Simulated scan of single mutants.
Amino acid sequence: MSSYAVLVGRLGAVATLGLLLSGCLADKLTTGSIMPTAASREVSTATSPEAREARWRELAAKYAPAYQKNPNDAATAYAYGVTLRALGQRAHALAVLEAASVKNPKQTQILAAYGRALSDVGRYEDALRVYERAHTPDRPDWRILNAQGAALDQLGRPGEARGFYDAALKLAPGEPAILSNLGLSYALSKDLAKAETTLAQAAASPNASETVRANLVMVRGLRAGDPTPRKPAKQRT
């Protein structure tokens, strides 16, 4: 597999998994949030990827029977779907979140999670249609704008994608998750100089994740002619 094929494969993962916990943590600031916040805080404070995964598994064991008992409860369906996504159970997560979106067509948190689940399985056109319903022009969400950009990059539409990244950065200046996707977008277009500059800016943020820094290492490897750039760290946040 070529270095650029590796980049293509990683971009969607960074955009979706990279947003997962940041979205959950933001939920506690949202009026009428349906996401149980204690669980997301516990995962976010876990000291290692292994500890975070173990906590997600505990949450899955908790939410599974609750969902089976009452699949119509929006908060339970959302929490269960997000947990399944965090564990990489893509098909199951998609089924749960799709059903929840049908039952709660105006619940933007569910729509956002459903869109990301669609992106997880490569249904980018469908994801874009769902993302459009997950926020509104008068109340834009930078996380959704960032996810829309990543989906467009996957569809080979980098010019449109960067318009969404720019819009996201206006709402969240310097946000490393956005800058990381923008840097990968440049890399996909083989503009490695811009890619490195943008990823270096992302990695310099105190909020940058391990994956953001790993993406910078990967692009620097490409610039140096390394045929096997380091794979970004596995991320559950």
Score class of each variant (00 low, 15 high):
Ser2Arg: 12
Ala5Cys: 13
Leu7Glu: 08
Val8Thr: 09
Arg10Cys: 10
Arg10Glu: 10
Leu11Phe: 14
Gly12Cys: 11
Leu20Ala: 13
Cys24Ser: 10
Asp27Pro: 03
Asp27Gln: 11
Asp27Phe: 01
Lys28Ser: 10
Ile34Gly: 00
Pro36Lys: 06
Thr37Gly: 12
Ala39Asp: 05
Arg41Glu: 15
Ser44Leu: 05
Thr45Tyr: 10
Thr45Asn: 13
Ala46Ile: 08
Ser48Leu: 01
Arg52Trp: 05
Arg55Cys: 10
Arg57His: 10
Glu58Val: 09
Ala61Gln: 09
Lys62Ala: 10
Lys69Thr: 11
Asn70His: 02
Pro71Thr: 03
Asn72Tyr: 06
Asn72Ser: 11
Asn72Cys: 05
Ala77Ile: 00
Tyr78Phe: 11
Thr83Trp: 08
Gly88Trp: 02
Gln89Thr: 02
Ala95Asp: 10
Ala95Phe: 03
Leu97Met: 05
Lys103Ala: 11
Thr108Pro: 01
Thr108Asn: 08
Ile110Met: 00
Ala112Leu: 03
Tyr114Glu: 06
Ala117Gln: 01
Leu118Gly: 00
Leu118Asn: 01
Ser119Ala: 15
Ser119His: 02
Asp120Lys: 00
Arg123Leu: 09
Glu125Tyr: 12
Leu128Cys: 02
Leu128Gln: 00
Arg129Glu: 06
Glu132Pro: 07
Pro137Tyr: 09
Arg139Tyr: 06
Asp141Gln: 12
Trp142Pro: 15
Ile144Tyr: 01
Ile144Trp: 00
Leu145Met: 10
Asn146Lys: 02
Asn146Ser: 14
Gln148Val: 10
Ala151Met: 01
Leu152His: 05
Asp153Glu: 13
Gln154Lys: 14
Gln154Arg: 14
Arg157Asn: 14
Pro158Ile: 08
Pro158Glu: 03
Glu160Pro: 06
Gly163Ala: 08
Gly163Ser: 13
Tyr165Pro: 05
Leu169His: 03
Lys170Gln: 11
Lys170Tyr: 06
Pro173Thr: 13
Glu175Ser: 09
Ala177Gly: 12
Ser180Lys: 03
Ser180Pro: 02
Leu182His: 11
Leu182Gln: 15
Gly183Tyr: 05
Gly183Phe: 06
Ser185Thr: 04
Ser189Val: 13
Glu196Asn: 04
Glu196Lys: 08
Leu199Val: 06
Ala200Tyr: 04
Ala202Cys: 13
Ala204Ser: 14
Asn207Ala: 13
Glu210Pro: 01
Val212Gly: 03
Asn215Cys: 14
Leu216Gln: 03
Leu216His: 07
Met218Glu: 12
Arg220Asn: 09
Leu222Pro: 04
Arg223Ser: 09
Pro229Gly: 12
Pro232Phe: 05
Pro232Tyr: 06
Lys234Arg: 15
Thr237Met: 12
